[in-house]
Design a protein around this nucleic acid. Sequence first.
DNA 1: CGTTTTTGACCGGCGC
DNA 2: GCGCCGGTCAAAAACG
Length: 272
Amino acid sequence: MEDHYATFPCYPFSEENNNSLGFMELLGMQDYNTTPLLDFPLSSTQTQTPVLKVEEEQPQTVKDCSEVFNLHHQPPPTPNSSSISSASSEALNDEHSKTVDQAHQQQKTNQQLKAKKTNQKRQREPRFAFMTKSEVDHLEDGYRWRKYGQKAVKNSPFPRSYYRCTSASCNVKKRVERSYADPSVVVTTYEGQHTHPSPVVGRSGVCANNNFGSLLMDASGNYMSQYYHQHNALLSSLGFPASKNATLGAAALLSDHGLLQDVVPSHMLNED
DNA sequence: CGTTTTTGACCGGCGC
DNA sequence: GCGCCGGTCAAAAACG
């Protein structure tokens, strides 16, 4: 990949790799709501926006990460990212309610799901993905995740892993897969929004700051905060304070190469 | 022993 | 209707 991208030396993120220095490069990120090339089932509140037109023109869904990579070489024609209203996530919250009796519970849950799905199509949270050059698949991002599935990816030798945030009543999920086009690249896709602050303290002792995330959320759309949590965690692991300035410094660094321009408002990058 | 991972089964959507 | 595929469940195993 001959494109420009920011490079971060960093510590290894997982135990199995802790005997060698890890190396990670953020290659780019993909905002599912601003690109015509990716599949992002919009919530009902978003179907009113012009973004939907983009999806109607490109009904094809992304089957593998190679299409994500194409974005790196051909940016979306019209970002159209003005301001995207936050998605309602209530439909997902009660989906996995549990009862005591297990045998009946599963039957019940299945019936509930079936009933729900016949009534309305399942809603999906806004998603975004970004690519990271990394030796390890599951990158530390300041949150705790429980793996709930792994599937083989079609046309790829590498599996895709499914994670859920371990915090109660938090429905954020993420998918992690390694690109078969470039095996050194990990594609991470986030779905949903954390309802709680990051529980993990970074290497520098500074916790990822949820207030900052909320701040950004107000300015430019809900899922953006996820990205900044990610960066706060990343910067923490690098020894930077997870402050607003440090984070925006990273954003500015990346924006020089056009990686964040679609999602970071200019006034935030210029802000002191 | 509580939590997380593994992994085959299962489900719904979609194209043919 | 059938098969494929992405996503999820859940029991068992592994882990700390």
